[in-house]
């Protein structure tokens, strides 16, 4: 894609993000943060190519470090979000869960 198309996508995505996030209630702001944190680990896509492309040793080393960091971000972010969201229970379910 050329730069202008990429920029168009960027600007539109910011507006979409704005719309979506402003509808998330304060109740869920912590999971929102950790979940979106996991999403920002998407940079793993670039890290994978940098690592596996068989470039110079330095590029490979940088790539592996990037894969490790991004994977921590993705796996940790999503898992911790799931752990938190699992705890959010409505009133009715409570007795059922306890037993």
């Amino acid at each position: 894609m050329d730069l202008l198309s990429l920029f168009t996508v960027f600007v539109l995505a910011i507006f979409v993000g704005n719309e979506l996030i402003s509808k998330v209630p304060p109740l869920l702001h912590t999971p929102l943060m950790s979940g979106s944190n996991g999403i920002s680990g998407i940079t793993i896509v670039g890290a994978l190519v940098a690592t596996g492309a068989g470039h110079s040793t330095l590029a490979t080393v940088l790539g592996v470090l990037a894969v490790i960091a991004a994977t921590i971000n993705v796996v940790g972010g999503f898992m911790v979000t799931d752990r938190m969201l699992e705890m959010f229970k409505p009133k009715k379910d409570k007795k059922a869960v306890k037993e």
Partner: peptide, 26 residues
């Protein structure tokens, strides 16, 4: 998020840009 979006520009990869922009806005 913004860092991821910028990397998306570097690589010409739209999914990084979209995901990064969403997180940046959040």
């Amino acid at each position: 998020g913004i860092a991821a979006a910028m990397t998306g520009f570097v690589l010409g990869n739209s999914v990084l840009i979209i995901a990064g922009a969403l997180v940046g806005a959040s």
